[in-house]
Design a protein around this nucleic acid. Structure first.
Lengths: 348, 348
DNA sequence: TGTGTGATTGTTTGCGTTATCACTCCTTGC
DNA sequence: GCAAGGAGTGATAACGCAAACAATCACACA
């Protein structure tokens, strides 16, 4: 390390060398040791105020930024958390990811994502591996599918992992919306309007949300001693809602329908209308999700709002607890909320 | 480094020590130097096949994983790229992010995200800084707002940056959908159906997409010598489309409307219907985006499809070029596609 | 027989940071 | 006046890997 010549600014020296400032440069400029610079950055209260000020001035002057790789190497912690997620273009996963990212930002964590090309055990393990190879401090898995459970049973030991929206028999903490409660709420709402029973258009098999909503719907019907019709099965898309709606509209017996998400409900609404069935006069429809547009469906959709942002925040908090070593409660449920609009009405 | 005792498996020794295997452990087990292990992992063709096999066997036996922090420290490259994005719950940004992530995965890159709490210069610079502090190899900015331009003019030198959806006077490479072409296509489609002119419901001011679509619409009208009505201004939400639609429906002069996104179009459709205006018999409507549901709007929406996934892939490729040192062409436009459905018809 | 030459492997060093221990003052208490 | 203790700072040694250079070996060629 050469000494500073008079008339030669430190910044100029750096640019001559074509490299960013490191801790030693800051130390030299501030007239202290590198260790003191490190302390100013990590435990400022252990440094005398005057020294601290000199160091901070040098940091600013050189636009010094700590090298995270070096820090990770010695501390073993990266300040990065990983999110393994399936199809982040869907409203639910995208919102959850957003909630996680916000919570992470507020806590000085960065988020790396590994999205899954397919939903199966191998794919999930591969996603976890990719993140682990970047030494993330922990991982949040957003893959509400039964195949995720398999992947979660074979995790590397020692790596903090939290699941979002998973079932209740997982070996890791879970943050989720209470699907059963939401489905039951939707079902009871329809029953309270005088409908004899409620039909259900469910999501695809093996999705946790599908079975949770089926279970909630079924239990609400059974609690009132109502007939439980065979559920219809869609694939979450508006298209599937439309196709099933067309088939359905041929019969007349259905007066109330609980649909497992808003997009299928949208397709269903259109199919019913095209078939001359009025909503809600002839058929009442309740959705699930409360996507931002559902208030502008025709008619505006009664639906169950999921607070994905809150789920993301809780998942992050669970992960933080795990990283910190506390165990805490293993399952945090967010209550969904029934939003009554105009797609539901009294039984005809 | 103690020597391996007979009868003592390497895996057992590791678990006793409660630490993961490092390169030296692999080297010892394989009977080579650490450097040879490094070569097997990075330049396998420089190692004799038998040696390579021994090393790989040891890697598997110990479940060895290279420490990325150490690798970054010495190579200066992390294999991580950063994405700075505003509101990843919106369909466009979410799809773009997904496209970037897929391309990154195929090229063994990992993606870290920094979402922005607000759209302004400070916020963008802060997002870039957060990612930079984690030594990403490059950054893709997805913030199609004029404020992004300001942030882009003050980037740290030496950091590869690519913009998505930005204007054409940016100091960095840009990947984007050709908004003007899409808007012009939508407008010409309406004119070709006999409409005298086309009204426009635009996105909020200062969004690049808003002005691009306004420009395309305007130029298409002017090219045909048509009157250019004052554009109406929404905020991308279905709600704003609805409100403006209600106001609009009071007048009768409008027969064709180009709406700057599908969600506003959805609100507009409902407002028109509620006001007794038929679509497309009385008014034709074209949207923009082609969200997955737009085929199930009522009526199914004619719209302009943006291939966000492709934009993401091209942005990644541009960034890879930049990281690799090649300059390449600075602007890659993806052609949008007009999808004709049932919300447009002959002028009444 | 000596000398390149290339293929293969090893040794040393340094990347930039923090942990640990050691050192110097200065205060406190008796 | 002196020991004990604490506050502030520094020197040194890791952390795990790859770059650079050195060493070894086999083989070909003159």
């Amino acid at each position: 390390m050469t000494t500073l010549q008079p008339g030669e600014s430190p910044a100029a020296r750096l640019s001559e060398r074509h490299r960013a400032a490191v801790m030693e440069d800051v130390a030299e400029l501030a007239g202290v040791s590198a260790m003191t610079v490190s302390r100013v950055l990590n435990t400022p209260q252990k440094v005398r105020p005057e020294t601290r000020a000199r160091v901070l001035a040098a940091v600013r002057e050189l636009d010094y930024r700590p090298n995270s790789a070096a820090r990770v190497l010695v501390t073993g912690r990266s300040g990065v958390l990983g999110v393994v997620s399936f199809d982040t273009t869907l409203y639910g996963p995208a919102s959850t990811l957003y909630g996680i990212e916000q919570a992470a930002r507020e806590n000085d964590y960065l988020v790396s994502i590994a999205s899954l090309p397919a939903l199966n055990r191998r794919s999930i393990e591969e996603g976890v591996d990719r993140l682990r190879s970047q030494s993330v401090d922990g991982i949040i898995i957003v893959a509400p599918h039964e195949s995720a459970a398999e992947g979660l049973r074979h995790l590397p030991p020692g790596l903090p992992v939290v699941d979002v929206g998973g079932g209740d028999d997982l070996p890791v903490p879970v943050a989720a919306v209470d699907q059963q409660a939401g489905a039951a709420r939707a079902t009871r709402h329809l029953l309270s309007l005088g409908h004899r029973t409620v039909w259900h258009l469910s999501g695809p098999p093996n999705w946790i949300d599908s079975s949770g909503r089926v279970a909630g719907w079924r239990s609400a019907l059974e609690a009132e001693g109502r007939e439980v019709p065979e559920p219809l099965v869609g694939d979450w898309s508006a298209h599937s809602g439309y196709e099933i709606g067309k088939r359905l509209a041929r019969g007349r017996e259905i007066t109330a329908m609980f649909v497992a998400n808003d997009h299928m409900a949208m397709g269903l609404l259109r199919a019913l209308r095209e078939s001359g069935r009025r909503v809600p006069e002839d058929v009442s429809v309740v959705g699930f999700d409360d996507v931002p547009e559902s208030a502008y469906f025709w008619p505006p959709l009664t639906t169950v709002r999921q607070n994905f942002g809150e789920v993301g925040r809780r998942a992050f908090q669970l992960l933080l607890d795990r990283i910190g070593g506390t165990e805490g409660d293993a399952r945090r449920l967010v209550e969904p909320e029934l939003v009554v609009r105009e797609s539901t009405g009294m039984s005809p």
